[in-house]
Design a protein around this nucleic acid. Structure first.
Length: 810
RNA sequence: GGGCGAGUGGCGGAAUUGGUAUACGCGACAGACUUAAAAUCUGUUGGCUGAAUAAGCCUUGAGGGUUCGAGUCCCUCCUCGCCCACCA
């Protein structure tokens, strides 16, 4: 008997699949298409660990299951290859990022192949390849042409370690998302994409997506739409006016002071001579604070009076104007009317500086601040409900031209320029005469030149600025001397359209052909971690909508359903990380002899796919033992000399039960219970073998063949071997998924649970076609039941057909 | 502070959506094989009382409710995880 040796069979089948192009996909419209996608990884030098593998294992199981079910499955893989790690490594070692990426891609690909994933490698893409980024640049020009890309000098997040600016989404709690250093603000001319123009659609279209509520709400929160009003306040004794944004115009009568952000442009104009010193001191100290300090919500609020007063437009009251850094310069108008009776923050501030507090809403809830209710102390508006007054006052203000309804968003335009080398060059030329000139399409790609020094200048310019041959060019418009833009694009630009390139990866005429995009897109199953919730997933949706508007695609949402897999934590409960030294790598487990199949099985069996779990060191032994049991059973059957020609309905029943359970569970992505069902089937087959031996050849054949097929999406290597050993030709993965027949599941006798007052007393076996009377009488005749009933009066008998009887007594 | 989610054996987790709670696996214990160990196989394994593989009681974070019947539905509370957070 052959031993189960994954080290031997796994590489064999991996080669077989490559040689036979088993997983190559084409536009075959005779079958329903299914596009299964995992986010294309950044090929870092580090080995992948079992946490990463879970993501790919889930995608692979979905892909294989659907292929066997007769779907035409696209399951591609590629590399999100631009990015800082390779560049930082280049600074340290002098090895070019191109080389680093080449090496680590080879390594990463080898690891993926070692796991036996069914990617169509003929579609492999690499975002740092000029054939790819040519089209990223093309999309930049498309955005530019549509007025969605613009350059503006402004104060931006700056990472002092990575020496580049960052988008808002890439600043986490005042730290750089990549290197975790504390970010600063720096004024630089930068390129932006106008994602704010799509804010409404990005919210509205979430509605119809099959995504988790938590990701949807993260996106909604990030976009942060709020409806309110802008209200103009005259500044006493000057010609100036101060505009504030508020979501509660109904509390306008309760505004007892105003607060400006320290950076607000009016501050200098309105500050009185006496207060000037204090104000300047405060502004300086606010600037000196780090962003983390400023964002700390527990911090005590501070502020300074400007000496100036504003006039409340509704009642002509003079109210003092303060500055305070709890008001953000970047949101709304950078100025607020403070209503300390009904806003917690204003309340805290008013109490500290002894400012007036006027109640204008009689709240109908417990909390003193916030909340809605009946309006008081507000002149003619008294006795209205908050929501009624909001509408009325906005109308009245609009009539007198002192305010208007406004919608505000938290989301900012997407800052996409990076002062780094290893990215797609922004295809723009600066000409003294013609200003900003886009590179003509025929001149694309703007190729990233090979350079010697990767050190960023640190003065806000990328290393490309030092490469004269790159910088100096001619203006496409006037032919005169001009210079190239030296910033490169945010890597997230490259990943905002990669899912389209997979549909048509080798097209040299277009980013993708209409037909192929139409055939494959949108993505049916997008599997990935929640870390992309407000970056990639928002950007990709935005780009897709732009393409839709341009008529390039016929859908406006790229990812129909999104599956967020749960994280695999280290056995110690922490996130796996190289620095903690607690990573578990599949390579190591394979070396120990477990094999990719056991690892894959464990990834899915360990718990629900979308829940975080700790990796269990010992668990892998269990899935390996299971595969070995399957292997041994298969071998014993093949080698057996006593294969009879009897029949055994038990084998057929157990097999059909498993087909039903595994098919349903796979369709619902209940991988852990699907694996459990396969273990149960195997256990049952062992029991039958022990009782009767291999007496029913045809039935055993059917059972073992089916077991191989049902197991195939999870353990692709061993199942090929089982399949061949049973005498089948071709790959099990191209075989047809089995279908169960209910007629084999019904049995002659059924088990009825008997309860007395809801407590389990007995199980009785009755024939399946028994009437209620027959079941009741056989239940009563059970010894234990009779004892419990003890001649008591049965008040009620609950009978659930084929399942349960409950006698209610006393 | 806001949003999303979760609490079931020693552990990871099941439970046909209101109908036998603890499937499946890990671990542990006992036995077989072995000079021995590993591997493998067989059995036991929620808790308490009991000599018992007799019988009974208890058990799904806590407490209440609805129901013939609640892990599942409703109310009150507690704990934990993740994400966002001075967004006016």
């Amino acid at each position: 008997m052959r031993r189960y040796n994954p080290k031997e069979i796994e590489p064999f089948w991996q080669k077989f699949w490559q040689d036979n192009k088993t997983y190559h996909t084409s536009e075959d419209s005779t079958k329903p298409k299914r596009y299964v996608l995992e986010y294309f990884p950044y090929p870092s030098g580090a080995a992948m660990h079992v946490g990463h593998v879970r993501n790919y294992t889930i995608g692979d199981a979905i892909s294989r299951f659907n292929r066997m079910r007769g779907h035409n499955v696209l399951h591609p893989m590629g590399w999100d290859a631009f990015g800082l790690p390779a560049e930082n490594y280049a600074i340290k070692t002098g090895i070019s990022p191109k080389q680093t990426i080449k090496d680590s891609t080879t390594k990463f690909k080898k690891q993926l192949m070692q796991m036996g994933f069914d990617y169509d490698w003929s579609r492999e893409i690499n975002s740092s390849d000029p054939d790819y980024y040519k089209w990223t640049q093309w999309f930049f020009l498309l955005l530019y042409r549509r007025g969605l890309a613009y350059r503006k000098e402004s104060l931006q997040w700056w990472c002092p370690v990575d020496k580049t600016v960052l988008a808002n989404e890439q600043v986490e709690n005042g730290h750089c998302w990549r290197c975790d250093s504390i970010v600063e603000k720096k004024a630089l001319p930068q390129w932006f994409f106008k994602i704010t123009e799509y804010a409404d659609r990005l919210i509205e279209d979430l509605e119809d997506l099959d995504w988790s509520d938590s990701i949807k709400s993260m996106q909604r929160n990030w976009i942060g739409k709020s409806k309110g009003a802008e209200v103009d306040f005259k500044i006493d004794g000057t010609g100036e006016k101060l505009t504030v944004f508020t979501t509660r115009p109904d509390t306008l009568f309760g505004a007892t002071f105003m607060v400006l952000a320290p950076e607000h442009e009016l501050v200098k104009k309105i500050t009185t001579a006496e207060e000037k010193d204090e104000i300047e001191k405060y502004i300086k100290s606010a600037q000196a604070k780090s962003e983390i300090e400023r964002q700390d919500t527990n911090r005590e609020k501070t502020g300074v009076f400007t000496g100036a007063y504003a006039i409340n437009p509704v009642n002509d009251t003079k109210i003092p104007i303060w500055i305070a850094d709890y008001v953000l310069a970047g949101y709304g108008t950078g100025a607020i009317m403070a209503v300390p009776a009904h806003d917690e923050r204003d309340n805290e501030f008013a109490k500290k500086y002894d400012l007036e507090i006027i109640e204008v809403v009689k709240t109908d809830e417990k909390s003193e601040i916030h909340s809605e209710g009946v309006i008081i102390n507000s002149g003619k508006y008294n006795d209205l409900r908050s929501e009624q007054m909001r509408e009325k006052i906005v109308n009245d203000l609009a009539k007198s031209k002192q305010g208007k309804e406004v919608i505000n968003y938290k989301i900012r335009d997407w800052l996409i320029s990076r002062q780094r080398y290893w990215g797609a060059p922004i295809p723009i030329i600066h000409c003294d005469k013609d200003g900003i000139v886009p590179v003509p399409e025929k001149d694309l790609p703007v190729v990233l030149p090979e350079i010697k020094s990767y050190e960023p200048s640190g003065d806000g310019r990328s290393p490309l600025a030092n490469v004269e041959e790159f910088v100096n060019t001619t203006c496409p418009k006037c032919g005169g001397k001009a210079t190239r833009e030296t910033d490169t694009m945010d890597g997230f630009a490259c990943s905002s359209w990669y899912f389209l390139r997979f549909a048509d990866p080798h097209n040299s005429e277009k980013a993708f052909s209409d037909d192929k995009a139409k055939f494959w897109l949108p993505v049916d199953d997008y599997i990935g971690g929640a870390e992309h919730a407000v970056m990639h997933l928002l950007y990709a949706r935005f780009w897709t909508k732009v393409m839709f508007d341009e008529g390039l695609v016929d859908f406006s949402e790229p990812f129909k359903s999104l599956r967020n897999q749960g994280m695999i934590l280290a056995p110690d409960g922490n996130k796996m990380s190289k620095s903690k030294g607690n990573t578990i790598e599949p390579g190591g487990l394979i070396d120990q002899g477990y094999g990719a199949d056991s690892i894959r099985l464990m990834e899915l069996f360990i718990g629900p796919w979308n829940q975080a779990v700790n990796w269990s060191i010992d668990g892998i032994g269990g899935t390996f033992r299971f595969l070995q049991r399957v292997w041994v059973l298969n071998q014993e059957f093949i080698d057996s000399e006593e294969k009879g020609d009897g029949s055994d309905p038990e084998i057929i029943r157990a097999t059909h039960k498993a087909i039903k359970k595994v098919s349903e569970d796979l369709a619902d992505m209940q991988f852990n219970t699907a694996v459990a069902a396969l273990m149960e089937l195997t256990n049952e087959l062992y029991k039958i073998k022990a009782d009767k031996g291999f007496v029913a050849k045809a039935e055993w054949d059917f059972a073992l063949m089916t077991l191989a097929q049902l197991l195939a999406p999870f353990a692709p290597h061993i199942t090929e071997e089982l399949w061949q050993d049973l005498g089948h030709k071709g790959s099990v993965h191209l075989s047809e998924w089995p279908v169960h027949d209910d007629k084999y599941l019904v049995s002659d006798t059924i088990n009825i649970v008997v309860q007395v007052n809801g407590k389990l007393k007995a199980n009785v076996k009755v024939s399946a076609d028994s009437s209620e009377e027959e079941v009741v009488s056989s239940a009563k005749s059970d010894g234990k039941v009779a004892q419990s009933l003890d001649n008591k009066e049965i008040k009620k008998t609950i009978y659930i057909k084929g399942r349960l009887i409950n006698f209610v007594v006393e």
